[in-house]
């Protein structure tokens, strides 16, 4: 609990082709616990790859990853799964699990391969469903949910995992405004409770509304990283997206507008 950073990346390099680190080119990053960090960048910037590396699903070609002050490779698979939860961008589930059965799968890190979830696991899963406002749907089949409800169910499953670090890949990409705000407020509440949140997005306004820290990526390179107001600047965003961008401060909040669109009026 005493490490200053829950996640520390230093000089991370990665490429899908052999020995050519083209996706991540020397990325360094330190994230303090209990914060919300947004990884912002255009499509293909390497955001999902970065999450997979943090999770241990992909191994970087060079660089160091520490989690809670210890190198990633010192953790077993099970320890990792208790520490880090993942909400994928979307998930195809070919069988119609009920929502509660689906969320209960998040208890796997605490069960041995031959164990079945017990009453405690059930209570934790129900708690996670309650947090996402899905309790009334617990007996519905997962494929019959709307896109937004399914996203909420995936987050509930990750919450049932009780991770200290929660990774979300484009958590709001399929959502309407109401569901989007519900997810963002749940994430903020979790962060206040000490869970570190890292999510990817390509929507700068989402970042402006939620994040404490911003990481701006473009083609695997770190363009800028730091506190929200200092990092989400017109200059940085223009460099990230390759088009002129304005940042407007209104009622204490930041709003990002593309100049090309505002000039069209």
């Amino acid at each position: 609990m005493s490490a200053p950073y829950i996640l520390s990346l230093s000089d991370l390099r990665f490429g899908y082709a052999k020995k050519a680190p083209t996706v991540l080119q020397g990325l360094s990053l330190d994230i303090p616990p209990g914060t919300v960090t947004a990884i912002l960048g255009p499509n293909g910037a390497g955001k999902t790859t970065l999450l997979r590396i943090v999770l241990g699903l992909l191994a970087p070609q060079a660089g160091r990853i520490s989690i809670d002050g210890k190198p990633q490779k010192n953790y077993s698979r099970q320890q990792m799964s208790r520490l880090i939860g993942l909400v994928p961008q979307s998930e195809y589930v070919p069988f119609d699990f009920s929502v509660l059965e689906f969320v209960l799968l998040g208890r796997a890190p605490y069960l041995s391969p031959l164990e079945m979830p017990g009453e405690t696991d059930r209570q934790i899963a129900l708690e996670a469903l309650r947090a996402m406002g899905l309790e009334h749907l617990r007996n519905r089949s997962t494929p019959s949910l709307s896109g937004g409800e399914r996203q909420l169910a995936m987050i509930a499953r990750a919450l049932a995992q009780q991770p200290r670090l929660l990774l979300l890949d484009e958590p709001t990409s399929h959502l309407d405004l109401g569901n989007r705000d519900r997810i963002l407020s749940v994430l903020r509440a979790r962060a206040r409770a000490g869970v570190t949140i890292i999510f990817t997005t390509h929507d700068p306004n989402l970042v402006a509304a939620t994040a404490d820290y911003v990481v701006l990526m473009r083609r695997g390179a770190l363009l800028a990283a730091g506190a929200l107001a200092a990092t989400l600047t017109a200059e940085n965003l223009s460099a990230t997206y390759g088009i002129p961008v304005q940042v407007i401060r209104w009622d204490g909040r930041l709003f990002v507008v593309s100049e090309q669109i505002s000039e069209m009026d």
Partner: peptide, 27 residues
């Protein structure tokens, strides 16, 4: 029969199963 609950996890995507601590290949 002993691994019946675990089987549910193996029906998830590799990425999700991995994040839940499943040794997908071995299991």
């Amino acid at each position: 029969w002993l691994m019946r609950w675990r089987l549910n996890l193996l029906s998830l995507s590799d990425e999700t199963a991995f994040s839940l601590g499943v040794a997908t290949g071995r299991e």
